[in-house]
Amino acid sequence: MTDAAAPTRPIILEAALDAPPDLVWRALTEPELMARWLGASDIEAKVGRCFTVRPDGPVGEAPIACEVLEAEPGRMLSYRWRATAPGEAAALDTVVTWVLEPTAEGGTRLRLVHDGFPVVLQGAIRGQGAGVSTMSAVRRRQAPDLRRRGDGRAKMSSGEVIKWAA
């Protein structure tokens, strides 16, 4: 977004991985490995490096334009994540951050923070009955299979928790 003050909210996801941080780091930063779980990429974990990711999927997808913001091998990796359309401003301008922590069992606690999703209706939602119900109706229509729990968390298939700020 062009307005730096525009409110945003993150997706935060935590996962317990049965592999040490150095191995997880490789999967996060080596193109051959990344291609197998996220998408074809020319990633290089150096601050300032621009790269793209093409998550596999249906035809018609656009590459995600990325730029490494922070890289601490084995510990933390952060990059811009922008979905763009030709000739247009960034449709989605966000930041993806991975934090790796070793566990006592020799595994890794992985934390993903995908931040920068715009909260455009904050003012309209706050205490405005009509706004809230309309938005909820929209949300239900748009994502009928979204299993949202009241406490703002949803279960991942593998038992971890995905959560988001309200």
């Binding site: 592999a19 999967a27 490995l33 996220l38 971890e160 995905i162």
Partner: peptide, 14 residues
Amino acid sequence: FWPERIDRLKDVLK
């Protein structure tokens, strides 16, 4: 998207 990709990441790590 992300939970599904994390599941795939686990497979790669395995």
